[in-house]
Design a protein around this nucleic acid. Structure first.
Lengths: 339, 339
DNA sequence: CTGTTAGCGCTTTCAC
DNA sequence: GTGAAAGCGCTAACAG
């Protein structure tokens, strides 16, 4: 059986309190300090976090609920979240919602029963109902990437709207007026990006025919098929905005397999870096999200909110939009006169 | 403050024991049953798993330690693990080792202190030293995908050797004798795959010049560069074996960007499906790993070992190699005489 | 600085 | 079928 604090007591003759104090970094006589240290090694003592949590009513664990753990974007975010949480002395308990709102709701309940100190959520659902239990139990929640309109929620996300505005402006500045959009409007971020595009197209009086708008799944397949369809059009676009990582992957593959070459025949700009930069040739123009910053800021905010709540103060519930950087590539060409 | 079992006691006049029994599915008079049920709803009572764990000394939580949470392969495995564990009443606590053996060791210690009931590990390290603490504390460990030679360990993996043997046999049966390999030997699975290839090449007396062997990182970049180099050779191979998902992604991109066309100029077969099937055109021949089966078997084995240990029996420590299916595509051509 | 004591919220004998 | 009581391993007053 594993050694307990009582075994150390026996071995050192000291009291539970002293040992506990030592364990929690309190002041203990150097002499006793040594004794305890020795006993811990001898007995191979390890704190039972379970018991500690029960009495402190802090689990030092954060529940992380993610829409799809197999998604590349989510994976990278998770990596940064785990890193930051760990560095702050917290454990991460990840739950996968598998894009299922029902499961997502269950996950929240599940983590709450596990007495997590806070919740970090990249949501599937677009309303906050599923978070009611957390509100009731006064467990702070920070959303990431996808915001939900609810004054009780904090969110760290990216300025999707501004970034896609800029992307379209760049295409337009290069002289493009036949611009197509492959995107996803099934999720809020996709819609924000799409709206950003549309706004600039309107401003600049660039009309966008129906067949240039390809909205669908957030998938490689959607990117692939859409690009194929665009290239097969009697009058194909001269430039394409690709709304996310999966779409870029599929769309670029479609271009590579076609008789078109970029940027000669078609100009490309995409949203999300992930695995693609340094790789595609010619290099793509990309809107790059600050993944690490987003994750770290969210973790920090959550931890600080946990503290605020414990101190009886109000947590911070702001929505923070991080800027997206557009990294130049060689995938955009000036429009030639004959197009 | 959250309601406790005591509040229910007050409200129903029943004893703690009865309520606890109800909570754990014991026999309670229908009448009391109703009373308790009602009180639970009224008070919005939720079990404090922390306290429950302390007394039962089971956390109903499995620690999952993964070499890289941002890796696509790992992500998919994690999804299936989480699914299975959840269905069996266990929570998953994921820890990312970020390909760092030091962190991996810390993760084990960390999870053990959290009193996880068992450990599921896709390891970075190739020796079992870092698992000593788990052995000492009698916490069962099941490895996935990458095995470690240690009789104390169980492992669910895939028969990499046999699968790559078959892949090369197929290429050879199509008449190829200029076969290149892009792979990774930095990790055990990569080596197994490579050895499988070499074995068949030897058997069939196909010689493989040094410049046809591209071993390196497990990365898109490695696949991309290697394929470029192969195609630039004065005498390029007629067929290429691509050792994993990232390598396929990079290598296929390189082919698409080149003047080569597959399967006309070069035949391709790859290891790992993940996002690629249904997508690449022509369709690739692929060795497909049974991801779900691997995850489910590992979770099942771990849970069953947890039970065995609790019952004082010996856990099962077998190494199980799951078969890999080779799915035909159109990416392999018969060798033409002039090559 | 150290020891004594009282729980944290739950499960689990053991009588009844 | 139900109740009383003990205790899981630890922390946190409070005295000394």
């Amino acid at each position: 059986m594993a050694a307990t604090i009582r075994d150390i007591k026996e071995r050192t003759g000291l009291s539970l309190a002293t040992i506990s104090k030592y364990l929690n970094g309190g002041n203990v006589l150097p002499e006793n300090r040594e004794k305890i240290k020795e006993a811990i090694v001898e007995l191979n003592y390890q704190v039972n976090e379970m018991a500690r949590s029960l009495v402190t009513s802090q689990s030092k664990t954060i529940g992380v609920v993610v829409f799809d753990i197999a998604n590349v974007f989510a994976g990278i975010l998770l990596r940064h979240i785990g890193e930051k949480l760990r560095a702050s002395g917290y454990a991460a308990m990840f739950c996968d919602s598998m894009n299922d709102p029902g499961l997502e709701k269950e996950n929240i309940r599940f983590l709450l029963n596990k007495k997590v100190d806070g919740l970090l959520v990249i949501p599937v659902e677009e309303t906050s109902d599923f978070l009611e239990p957390a509100f009731n139990e006064n467990v702070p929640v920070v959303l990431m990437d996808r915001s939900i309109k609810d004054p009780r929620l904090a969110c760290i996300k990216v300025d999707n709207h501004a970034a896609s505005e800029e992307a379209i402006r760049i295409l337009s500045d290069y002289g493009h007026r036949k611009i197509a959009i492959i995107g996803s409007t099934l999720i809020p971020t996709g819609r924000e990006r799409f709206e950003g595009c549309i706004k600039v197209l309107r401003e600049r009086r660039i009309e966008i025919p129906e067949e240039y708008v390809k909205l669908g799944q957030h998938s490689i397949e959607h990117g692939y098929r859409s690009m194929q369809e665009l290239l097969a059009l009697p009058e194909p676009p001269t430039a394409v905005f690709m709304g996310n990582f999966e779409i870029i992957l599929g769309a670029v593959m479609a271009v590579n397999e076609s008789s078109f070459e970029y940027p000669r025949d078609i100009s490309l700009i995409g949203f999300d870096d992930l695995l693609i930069s340094n790789l595609s040739n010619p290099r793509l123009w990309l809107a790059v999200q600050p993944m690490q910053e987003m994750a770290w800021k969210a973790a920090d905010l959550l931890i600080s909110n946990i503290r605020l709540i414990r101190e009886g103060q109000d947590p911070v519930r702001s929505e923070i939009k991080l800027p997206v950087k557009i990294i130049p590539g060689s995938s955009i060409a000036h429009v030639s006169e004959n197009k």
